[in-house]
Design a protein around this nucleic acid. Structure first.
Lengths: 198, 198
DNA sequence: GTCTATATATTGATAGAC
DNA sequence: GTCTATCAATATATAGAC
């Protein structure tokens, strides 16, 4: 049996998971190879066997996050039949992540914000994390009966979520998360296709 | 005449202005002393005469930005009597900054997002930039007749603005800025104290 | 696949001559 | 107030023994 290859895959995964956590908690540029190696418990020198550059790690982290989100959203879809209920369930999940959001902001939003300045190639890939949310929300709005407006409704809701998380994070104010999530829920509950959207 | 002191003040101001621009365009951590010195056209070694640490420069940049915003908002207040019109005028100003927002995001939001991860002491000071907006908006809502709700309305509007700028910045989508600003204007226009706020 | 040693560049920051 | 020289620390990255 080729145990070495299995161990290599485990190590790769360990590195990606460590990087994922550190990029979230410290930011991408503030996280060094040494930091990742230390958390992943991989010797510094051995590191370049798995990843040649930090960008390469980031790409893996992005895909890992996208898969995670997609899985979570698919779970909502299979558990709940009603699109409106699915959107409400998503707001619940966000509200439940209050502690992380207060401390480190949104996993996806803060990365996009950081990369946008000078690493646009990477940031374009990171934008894919938003795509997963936006496309899923758009599908739910379509399921509610919206057609042309569905995409913009999804973008609007995403913007509300991102703005909220940034203020919660900036002001370390978890109450504001609850307040804004309640607002979002009211908005989602009030939406009806055909009427003018508030 | 003490020309040397005047020149010193000029140099200080030049450094702060250069740092302000670079922190916005590249981010705080990605900007080195050398970068600032180069843009400000101050020799690298001569730099530490004016500022001992990068944090010290940042504090000056933050205060510079806060003064700038305060001045801009005071201008709106003196030019327009109606609080609602003032809020609408602010959304106009934001819409007019579409190019910068698309390229570099919000001057204030991106800095808060970056500093929050590991430089919380600095971030707390940077949050003051949000305070200036929030407090001003709260005053306008009070002027419109809102009392207890004024502060949360201000927070909500700030969150909408921040979420919007982040998506515009992430997706390089200036159209979305126009769309969301139109939404905000509609919301501001529809607000009336006493009624349930949408 | 693992690990040590090391190259090289850049960083923030200082000392001290002018 | 100006500028050169330089420090110590840290960064990404590589070579090569095992």
């Amino acid at each position: 049996m080729d145990t070495s290859r299995i161990k290599g895959i485990q190590n790769r995964q360990r590195i990606v998971e460590a990087a994922d956590r550190l990029f979230y908690e410290q930011g991408y540029n503030a996280t060094s190879f040494s930091d990742i190696a230390q958390v992943a418990e991989i010797p510094r020198g051995n590191f370049y066997y798995y990843f040649k550059t930090k960008d390469e790690i980031l790409e893996n982290v992005i895909h890992c996050r996208m898969d995670g989100v997609a899985g979570m959203l698919e779970g909502l879809e299979s558990r709940l039949d009603c699109p409106r209920a699915r959107l409400l369930a998503l707001t619940d999940i966000i509200a439940g992540r209050g502690d992380d959001i207060t401390r480190y902001g949104c996993r996806f939003g803060t990365l996009n914000a950081e990369l946008g300045k000078r690493q646009q190639a990477l940031q374009q890939k990171a934008a894919g994390m938003f795509d997963v949310f936006r496309d899923w929300m758009e599908r739910q709005f379509r399921g509610m009966g919206f057609t042309d407006e569905a995409r913009m409704l999804a973008m609007h809701l995403l913007a509300c979520i991102q703005g909220t998380t940034l203020l919660v994070y900036t002001y370390k104010d978890k109450d504001f998360l609850r307040y804004e999530v309640a607002r979002m829920r009211q908005w989602i509950g009030s939406l009806n296709p055909g009427e003018t959207t508030p």
